[in-house]
Amino acid sequence: MSLKLPIDVHAIKGFLAAHEGEALYHLAAEASAFGSSLEVGSYCGKSTLYLASACKLVDSVLFAVDHHRGSEEHQPGEEYHDPELFDEGVQLMDSFRTFRRNIRAAQLEEWVVPVVAPSAVAARCWNTPLGLVFIDGGHSLEAAMTDYRSWARHIVPGGYLAIHDIFPDPADGGQAPYDIYKLALASAQFELVEMVGTLGVLRRV
């Protein structure tokens, strides 16, 4: 990896490939000319590390939106459940403590604003123009549609929408991120910039 990050990104739990993370880093730096960046789905902070490191470089801010109770696939008995992130006291998944620890270790707290709430709740009274929205939240169709409808409208012209886990072939993965990707293109409000792995990068026209 060509980037020099403040901590070892491989030590952070998450599902973002290194080349996708590098693309997010460069995107956040460029998007700062249009407004702040926002991610939906921080989990333990892997994507946050890339995005916030770029925000630090250009003195911008990253809003990190996540309820930190995990998506459907993170729950007990599901494929991506991690017992280390399960809070036995309340019998709920909780990635927030790990997220905060990672951001503190990376010394990025001054450039990250954690928003610990469901996506739709966080967006309900949102008024800040955004230069970049990165969607990597729940992968059910309902969750993905909620994220897209909640945040895409806040992207300013020239700003970017990035969507993770786009799989055109259903055999490769879930279709909800691909569905909102197609919806964004069909809206005529966004144009495709590039695909980096499963990361789709679109620009607001």
Results as ranks from 00 to 15, higher is better:
108 L>N: 02
13 K>G: 09
8 D>R: 10
20 E>N: 01
7 I>Y: 04
177 P>L: 00
102 N>Q: 09
157 P>H: 12
202 L>E: 02
52 A>G: 03
13 K>Y: 11
25 Y>L: 11
28 A>K: 06
70 G>K: 13
155 I>R: 03
147 D>H: 06
2 S>V: 08
89 G>S: 10
142 E>G: 05
21 G>M: 05
189 Q>M: 11
7 I>N: 06
128 T>Y: 07
3 L>R: 09
197 G>W: 01
175 Q>H: 03
38 L>S: 13
152 A>Y: 02
13 K>I: 04
94 D>V: 14
83 P>E: 12
198 T>R: 01
144 A>P: 01
93 M>L: 15
175 Q>G: 08
156 V>G: 05
16 L>E: 02
182 K>V: 02
131 G>V: 05
130 L>A: 10
197 G>C: 00
205 V>L: 13
157 P>W: 03
10 H>P: 01
134 F>P: 04
148 Y>D: 03
104 R>Y: 03
119 S>T: 10
148 Y>K: 01
129 P>R: 06
46 K>P: 01
34 F>D: 06
106 A>K: 07
196 V>N: 00
39 E>G: 08
89 G>K: 08
44 C>V: 11
183 L>E: 13
9 V>K: 05
153 R>K: 11
67 H>C: 13
91 Q>R: 13
10 H>K: 11
145 M>Y: 06
92 L>C: 15
138 G>M: 10
71 S>F: 14
111 W>I: 12
8 D>Q: 12
29 A>Y: 05
8 D>C: 11
57 L>N: 14
133 V>N: 00
175 Q>L: 04
72 E>T: 14
68 H>F: 14
105 A>Q: 11
111 W>P: 10
14 G>A: 06
170 P>N: 02
114 P>H: 14
96 F>Y: 15
174 G>N: 04
101 R>I: 13
19 H>V: 07
107 Q>I: 05
158 G>D: 11
76 P>H: 12
53 S>L: 08
104 R>L: 08
60 S>P: 10
94 D>H: 14
86 F>M: 05
129 P>N: 08
55 C>D: 13
22 E>K: 10
55 C>S: 12
51 L>I: 15
69 R>C: 15
112 V>E: 05
54 A>Y: 04
22 E>P: 01
103 I>K: 08
115 V>L: 14
163 I>N: 00
9 V>Q: 06
174 G>A: 09
157 P>V: 08
174 G>W: 00
82 D>M: 13
163 I>E: 00
21 G>F: 04
34 F>L: 10
203 R>E: 12
64 A>S: 15
170 P>K: 04
20 E>W: 00
59 D>F: 08
